[in-house]
Structures are given as structure tokens and as C-alpha cells.
Design a protein around this nucleic acid. Structure first.
Lengths: 228, 228
DNA sequence: AAAGTATACGAACAGTCGTGCTACTTTCTG
DNA sequence: CAGAAAGTAGCACGACTGTTCGTATACTTT
């Protein structure tokens, strides 16, 4: 398999730029990104960074894709390793809270920050962020519905409402913790999630069989970053 | 009461600037505010706007105070007109959701947007936004505790957790609605809040006596804007 | 060896940013 | 009436923005 040395070099710098860009954007926002500052931080030329993406908007979109890979590596993928049911639902909650709490991005959840930043603006960046949010909501809902289909959640439970509540608790934990500091919000969110899931479980004594599966301490491990 | 014509004139323009500034900031953020654009929108000179606040940071802080007045006029003040207890707690939820849903600020809740924007940054603006968030959390918790002290919420209820959950549902409704459009998030949040409050109520049949009190259709009515 | 391509650089573009200085108008005080 | 005070305007500054251009280097393909 012959590899083009120029391409691997470009891919490496592109990756370094996006790694830095997603970190910055989680704190200062995607609009707070500046090509010049990015170039200075990485000791590259401004025009070099610019040429690699073509425009600032393309850089922002690439950063969103890159952050999506990191999110998947830390939240959704490890969750899918747990077999469907209430155990997977609990694992999802824990993986998500852990991803926020461990500050995979220095500013907390990348998509919470950028979602709030672009919520009321039109454009391609808004659409990309909104789509990522929708995808995760669907993922939560599907995970809950699986558990219901298996019979581990009561049939009369509104899974859309349950998913909304779990989503709300996670968002609030991230928001409160980053804004005010401290880990108390995560304790509250875990308690709330336990109540919600436990209250929806079929047996009054929820099956504590499968402990929610965490992820290693490694900060990041994005395998495939499609940063076109 | 003799009034200084120069002062009332300045106060009027200051107010016009802050009205515009809070609207813009709820969509584009406090960092997205630009003195030049503000001046152009209001047909004032850039230096005139600048002189009125002294610095951009002071403008941002004044905008936060102004938005705080609008928030109080729409959420906390009308809530306090309901007598303490579970009725006031329900009114708080409804007033808050209504304030977000009616888009008192075009970008949804001002403090959600700016809180997310400045959550991970240091400085006076962060502190002001965080303090506003803390004050509202305390307000929710106090309202719930009142209801518990009166005996309308069960004694074994953790009011801190209840307040956190209600706060989370409101935040999520605002976030989802602004980002994705539609009013379904408010329906879900109302359902969740009803479950939380109803489940914490002392009687299994919650007292539907006091209907949550809404606010008039008028968009804003800030009485006293301390815009120093 | 020649042609073509991708990365990266340096300089410069026009525009906007926050800020400071000066001058003028309006209003209040004495 | 004079003088002070507050608001507003005009102008210019240095710094930074995204973007464009021309060019040098490294690599692959012919």
C-alpha cells in the first residue's frame, strides 16, 4: 500500500490544527476561533492553516466533525459494547457524564457549548451542530426503547419523555459544573438519572447486574478523524 | 422633583443601547457584541456609545444587569405574587418556561446563552453571569423548600435534587427549542415538571387549586433598569 | 529528467475591532 | 450672563480579522 508522503504530512497538521481548534472552541466558541491565533499556537503560518481548510466556515465544520469522532469514541461507542437493555441505558448515562466530567474538552462538552453558541443563528454551522444534537437525542431514545422492547422498562413508560429527562440532567450537570466549578452537579445528575431509570424499570428492585461500563483514563483516542 | 434634562437624555440612549445589546447578545453572545454595530443600528456614533459605558466589558456587565431586570420582571417577580407553597413552585416553572417560549429575548433565555458562552472563561463577565445563575438556582430551591416547610411537599424529598431537576428540564426545553425549533420541548418539560412536583407532593392527588399564574402578552416591561 | 501536485510560507489586501482625543451642543448652576 | 457638566460627534490610532496572491519546497508520476 503506497502512501503519499505529502498527504500524510498534510493529514498530520490538519489533525493537529483540529485538535487545538476543538479545545479552543469548547471554551471560546467556534466563532472565537481565529486562524491567526491557531497558526501562532502551532507555529504555522496563517496562510498555511487557511489553505488547509479553504475558509473559516470549513474549518468550523471540520472541527465539528472532529469533535463528533471524539464524542463517539468516548460516549456512544463504549455504550454499544454493553448489551441492549437497561444496563446499556445506564452505561450511556455514565459514559456521557464521565466524558463531561473528565473534561475531554477543556470547556466541558463541545456540543453543549457550540450548540448554545449557534442555536439561534442560521447557516451551515448551525445545521451541523443541530444535526449532531439530534443524532444524540435519537441515540438516547433508541437505547431506552430497546430496553422497553426487551421488557426491562415498563410498557407504559413514555420513552421520549424519559430520554428528554435524561438528556436534560446530563446537559444541566455539564452546564452547572463548568460554569460554577465543582462536581456536585454530577452527583445530582446521577441521582436523578438513577431515579428516572429505576422508576421506569419493570421490577421494583432494579437489576444491579451490569455495572455501568466506564472508559479508560486516557484522555482521547480518536481512531479515524474524517477531517476533510 | 427636578430632573436634569441631560441625564434623562443619556439614560434614554443608554436604555436603547442596552435593549438592543441584550437582544443581540441572546443570539450572538456577549462577545459577539460590537460597539460599532450597536452604534450603526441605533444611528449613533461609535464614540458616543463607547463614552456611555467606558469600555466593552462595562457594556457587557450593564447588559447582564439589564437582562437581569427583564428576567425578574418576567419570571421571579410574578412568581412571588403567588402565595408560598406548591402553587408558587408550579407558577415558577410555568413563568420560566413561558419567558423562554415567548422569546422575550429573540435568542431564547439570555442567561442560558451567555452562561454557556462564558462558562469556562475567567473574568468579571463570567462572574456576573455565574452569579445570576446561582441566584436563580437558589430561588428555585427556596421556593421548593417553602412548599416543604408548609407541608405541601413530603418531608423525605431532597429539595436540592428536586430544584436541580426542575432547573435541568427548563434549561433543556430552552436549548432544544432554540436549536431545533418547535415547541415540543416545552411540552416535554412541562410533563417532566408535573411528574417531579406531583411525585413530591404530600397528597397523592396534587391540589389543582391554584392555576399557575402567567404574565401578560406584553413583550417587556422593565420598570427599573439599573444600567450604571 | 520533466511535469504535475500538495503543503507551507511571507507579504499584502480591505475591513472591523476597541480605544483615545478633540470639539461642539445642550442643559443646569451660580 | 458666565461657567461647568453631560452627552454626542468626528477623526485617527494600533491591533487583529479572513482572504488572496505569488513563490518555494517536497513528493509522485510520467
Amino acid at each position: 500500500m503506497p502512501v503519499d508522503g505529502r498527504l500524510v504530512r498534510g493529514e498530520a497538521t490538519r489533525r493537529a490544527i483540529l485538535e487545538r481548534a476543538t479545545d479552543v472552541a469548547s471554551v471560546e466558541g467556534l466563532e472565537g476561533l481565529s486562524i491567526g491565533r491557531l497558526a501562532a499556537d502551532l507555529e504555522l503560518s496563517k496562510s498555511g492553516v487557511f489553505a488547509l481548510f479553504g475558509s473559516k466556515e470549513e474549518l468550523q465544520l471540520a472541527a465539528i466533525r472532529f469533535a463528533g469522532d471524539i464524542f463517539a469514541d468516548n460516549v456512544t461507542r463504549p455504550t454499544l459494547e454493553v448489551e441492549p437493555g437497561i444496563g446499556r441505558l445506564r452505561a450511556l448515562c455514565e459514559n456521557w457524564l464521565g466524558y463531561s466530567e473528565r473534561r475531554i474538552f477543556p470547556g466541558g462538552c463541545f456540543f453543549f457549548h457550540t450548540g448554545a453558541e449557534f442555536d439561534a443563528r442560521p447557516g451551515r454551522v448551525h445545521d451541523a451542530v443541530a444535526e449532531a444534537g439530534t443524532a444524540f437525542s435519537v441515540f438516547i431514545t433508541r437505547t431506552a426503547r430497546e430496553a422497553q422492547d426487551i421488557g426491562e422498562l415498563r410498557a407504559d413508560i413514555d420513552v421520549s419523555l424519559l430520554a428528554f429527562e435524561l438528556h436534560a440532567l446530563g446537559q444541566a450537570a455539564n452546564a452547572d459544573s463548568v460554569l460554577h466549578g465543582g462536581i456536585e452537579p454530577y452527583r445530582l445528575a446521577r441521582a436523578g438519572m438513577r431515579n428516572r431509570v429505576g422508576g421506569a424499570a419493570s421490577t421494583s428492585r432494579p437489576p444491579m447486574a451490569s455495572v455501568p461500563q466506564g472508559v479508560p483514563a486516557a484522555r482521547r483516542w480518536p481512531g479515524s478523524a474524517s477531517a476533510g
